[in-house]
């Protein structure tokens, strides 16, 4: 019986694919690789690797401890490499931090005011809910890679020309 080997990528071991153009523009495919992007990113820089109108997927290099963040809507993160801890605080006044009119991740100024909700430790391939109304912060003892599902916001970094095939 065939023994299958599932190949995941990592920060230290990834093999980027390619585009073979027949009659097209490679820029239209906005092709990048999350591990390559994380390799060239600052810790917790939220680099957009996909954008669909207002929505984004951000690649994040998790290293050390992030600042506190929140959003007026649910967000989600998936660990692509390494291990990431998330702490959560239920905000006493979430609208003051991330009003409904404001989309995307916002930075929480200072320590979040509210009750501690607990923590989640994520390993490879694990996905967590970053719930609306909660502040959260990440920490990683080593260097890890995540993707985050969110909406284009003040913290989103767009540098398509640097990260994509052209």
């Amino acid at each position: 019986m065939t023994e299958f080997v599932t190949r995941f990528g990592s920060l230290k071991d990834f093999d980027k694919g390619h585009i073979e153009i027949i009659n097209d523009n490679p820029k239209y495919y906005v092709f990048s690789n999350v591990f390559e992007v994380a390799n060239g990113a600052k810790p917790y820089e939220k680099v957009a690797v996909a954008k669909n109108l207002e929505y984004v997927i951000e690649a994040i290099r998790a290293e050390g401890t992030s600042g506190w963040m929140a959003a007026s809507h649910d967000e989600f993160c998936i660990v692509m490499d390494g291990q990431v801890d998330i702490e959560f605080v239920k905000l006493d006044n979430p609208d003051a931090v991330a009003p409904a009119s404001k989309e995307g991740t916002v930075a929480v100024q200072g320590e979040p005011k509210g009750k501690r909700m607990g923590s989640i430790r994520l390993g490879h391939g694990h996905q967590a809910l970053l719930p609306k109304g909660a502040a959260y912060r990440f920490s990683s003892a080593g260097t890890s890679v995540m993707v985050q599902q969110s909406i284009l916001g003040d913290l989103t970094v767009q540098k398509w020309g640097e990260i994509c095939y052209s």
Partner: peptide
């Protein structure tokens, strides 16, 4: 139906389908 491109995606790759 005319061919435009071929795109090989490996683990960690992200691409748009226009």
């Amino acid at each position: 139906g005319r061919p435009r491109a071929r795109v090989l995606m490996k683990a960690g790759d992200v691409a748009a389908m226009p």
